[in-house]
Design a protein around this nucleic acid. Structure first.
Lengths: 222, 222
DNA sequence: CGAACAGTGTCAGCCAGGTGACACAGTCGC
DNA sequence: GCGACTGTGTCACCTGGCTGACACTGTTCG
């Protein structure tokens, strides 16, 4: 668990401005709980009290609101990402449901432990502040990438932002829900990108061949 | 200034979970700087190092990316809102430009003072964490309100979220940029709402007459 | 190894919202 | 009180993304 805590220390927030001490890691390690979840498991559900903080170690988790036609994906967690803390901080139920999209390994921190951690460890609080700030910056960039842009640009932005090691391991279903468009519309754009040699489509995955051209399509803006 | 600090203590984050002590307020008051800005003044510009934290006391501030056709408004600050801190926390330039839309009164906290405040006052850090968490929650709700919804619903959500005392004091230009749509499209929806008696349009302002009906149009979702 | 299922590729028709333009109204500075 | 400017209301035309549907392919699990 100490290894897991050290790993969290590398992933959560920015280390240079807010370093953690070995004693912080000891305390954190004592609170952590390792959980393996199969694809499709629900970490927490929209409108229902969240009972702790989740840190994704392996796999993928989608954050979605609505269902059926109205389903929208607010975000997708990647290894190193944290979620479930904000509802605890604000004492509100989470507005979205978090569900694994593949078999995943997570670290879980109970609500009470999280509160004690923040109350007793100011360096952890400081570090957590930078973690939440990072997420806020990412949300704002996401908004900027969506507002008033044609689907081709939105798609280019999304692929650039979600790529991990030159690939996006998500179904077109989920990608479409992240843009708030229908799957056929997205598929049309993706096939066009593929014809132009920018990407390659496969089952539940997209390989990026020409990141430069995608960035150009995404527009000058960050 | 101590009054201003006490006012900030009421506005920033949630007081119940993270109360500030009188000594915290003294320190905060010592750092604050009161500034009056005319409409159109730039607090900080996209891509350029932000030099401090702004807290809006009176007036309105728009956060915008892009220009001309590509202009998108990420958000609008209302009295009590804070901005400019996230780029400091992450040591990145702000992705958007903040500009007053009306004559405004603001409190300014220099970057160095902000850092000292966080380093020396853990209760302030704890409180700031809840402030950033609030903003993150708001951004995610904004995404949920935009993704994959027809303009009528998006407009209803926007009016509900931006209303202050039953009115929205923003030009249709800015409202359209907040949704990423063109002004004529938004105007069509607004006139329709007006015909149905839900709202009343005037110069740079919208009065809300039937919040219940708007909420119904905004959909069941929060 | 094969059935059940989840994901992808594609289409024709439709309609919401974009485009560009222009007239008019409110506000502000002089 | 007048002119400049900013904001609002509206239109005819066009296009991009939605609809609902169906065939096909990859995956998974019995």
């Amino acid at each position: 668990m100490l290894r897991a805590a050290a790993w969290i220390a590398r992933c959560v927030g920015r280390g240079d401005t807010a370093p953690l001490r070995p004693s912080d890691l000891d305390v954190l390690a004592g609170y952590l709980d390792l959980r393996e979840l199969a694809a499709g498991a629900v970490l927490f559900a929209a409108g229902q009290r969240s009972d702790g903080v989740w840190i994704l170690r392996r796999g993928g988790v989608e954050l979605a609101v609505g269902a059926g036609r109205r389903r929208a994906v607010i975000g997708v967690l990647r290894p190193g990402d944290v979620d479930g803390d904000i509802p605890l901080l604000l004492d509100i139920p989470p507005p979205y449901t978090a569900r694994t999209v593949t078999d995943s390994t997570l670290l879980f921190l109970q609500a009470a432990s999280f509160e004690r951690l923040l109350a007793e460890r100011p360096t952890v609080t400081r570090r957590w502040l930078s973690s939440v700030a990072q997420r806020q910056a990412a949300s704002q960039l996401r908004l900027a990438g969506l507002l008033g842009r044609p689907l081709i640009e939105q798609t280019a932005v999304l692929l650039r932002d979600e790529a991990q090691d030159g690939a996006v391991a998500l179904s077109q279903q989920i990608l479409a829900a992240m843009l708030g468009v229908r799957r056929p519309s997205l598929n049309k754009v993706l096939k066009d990108f593929e014809r132009r040699g920018l990407i390659e489509l496969s089952y539940r995955a997209i390989t990026i061949h020409d990141p430069g051209a995608l960035a150009r399509l995404a527009g000058v803006r960050a």
